[in-house]
Nucleic acid binder design. Structure first.
Lengths: 236, 236
DNA sequence: TTATTGTTGACAATAAAATAACAGGAGTGC
DNA sequence: GCACTCCTGTTATTTTATTGTCAACAATAA
């Protein structure tokens, strides 16, 4: 909230995790917690917890610790979770539909208002009450309704152009599931969810731990399907 | 591959992105590229590119740059993408089904062999040719088949126990979509995809940029649905 | 050939992030 | 109310990550 000093990305990325742990504590009717106790639960140093929280203000009290409910609500405010967000899904494929069906977003105030796609078979359908529109109608929709976040779940070939258009039309944030880096103006925020990258990172670690040093190719045809040649994969 | 010196996590996380860019270059029939050129495309310093790559060996040539195809294939090997991976999905809900339907995984050699769920309405179904089994059968399956990666897309209340069991039965890696931190032995690798956290991070940035300083509560009832009270959300 | 340009890989310098140290106020027990 | 312990907020230190610099060498041009 305070735009005094710049908060480091590393800290911001940890905030949701603090929020989750505090929510859990709240559910367990724990009213206070010290950085040391939280440190043990979360597996990070107490020092880091204190330093992270102090970026946003002194929420604790010496000799007492942190009041769980108070801190929970403060982080909620810091993350901006005390308001509603209007979102649209662009690309009504597997992931897009899964996100629309994920009811917990709405419980938290992240409301998916519409889905846009080019597939005639999808257009006109409703997914959990959310209508699927033709992308042709997207410009009008975005210009006439506040859209905080566009969830991009479309083929990479289209993602860049769509993101650009949406930015131009006033969408503030992009939650990007398309496997491509978007190029948008500085005042448009982008958060990437590159699933394939994430999986590859896991595979690297598995290889490092289990197959390090081996000749990889001996596994190639070991079992399962043969690897199909990698062609243009548009759905990524 | 070389288990000589420890590679930093920051570097590993960047590898898939290099791989993607090199794949794109390959598609564009570009045969060589310098760190400087790649730097411009990827928006990171040439220095970092060279240093990252040199963790794994000297793939470039002075006065020439890097051969795209060679480097692409080297990174492929580093990431372990030159072999097949057997995966199972645990939790056949929205996200689980979406991942099974995502055909590009298979093209890359990430093969989903089975889905496990407790829902009787799902059990026996097939999703894109992949059968859904009762979780009761999971132990037998995992013990009798090599499972490299378990994709966890189940409610957080169950995720911890299931992950533990899977680890015990020999699964090497967990790709965790459940909104909870898993506690598994050190030789089991975990990669988290916490979608809600990712979205919250985006919302923080949006708030910081657009609503900083404002009283947040004026937005509360502005438009859209009222925020429902946040109860136990098991599907997270 | 020989000079010039381009580019890596190694290393030094800087910046960012994480951890540790600590002074001192707040709670606790007597 | 006093002594003592707990635990924060803050500053210092260490570690990790990124960026800048340059000698050595390949490619190219003269």
């Amino acid at each position: 909230m305070d735009s005094e000093k710049k908060i480091s990305p590393a800290v911001i990325n940890r905030l949701p995790r603090y929020y989750r742990y505090l929510g859990d504590l709240l559910e367990s009717d724990i009213t206070r917690i010290s950085s040391k106790e939280l440190s043990a639960k979360m597996n990070i140093t107490a020092s880091q917890i204190r330093q992270d929280l102090n970026n946003f203000g002194g929420f604790g009290q010496q000799g007492y610790g942190y009041n769980v409910e108070y801190l929970y609500n403060e982080i909620k405010k810091i993350l901006g979770l005390d308001r509603l967000y209007n979102m649209i899904v662009v690309g009504g494929g597997n992931i897009g539909q899964a996100l629309v069906n994920y009811t917990n977003f709405e419980k938290r105030g992240f409301v998916i208002k519409a889905v846009f796609d080019i597939n005639p078979r999808l257009i006109g359908m409703t997914i959990r009450g959310v209508e699927v529109y033709d992308v042709d109608q997207m410009e009008a929709y975005v210009k006439n309704n506040r859209v905080d976040v566009a969830i991009l779940t479309l083929p990479r070939s289209q993602a860049v152009k769509v993101a650009n258009d949406l930015a131009k039309w006033g969408v503030k944030g992009m939650w990007n599931f398309s496997h491509v880096d978007l190029q948008v103006p500085d005042d448009v925020l982008v958060e990437n969810v590159h699933l394939t990258d994430s999986l590859m990172t896991l595979l690297y670690k598995i290889n490092e731990m289990y197959y390090s040093g081996e000749d990889m190719h001996e596994h190639q045809l070991k079992d399962g399907l043969p690897v199909k040649p990698l062609k243009e994969n548009e759905e990524e």
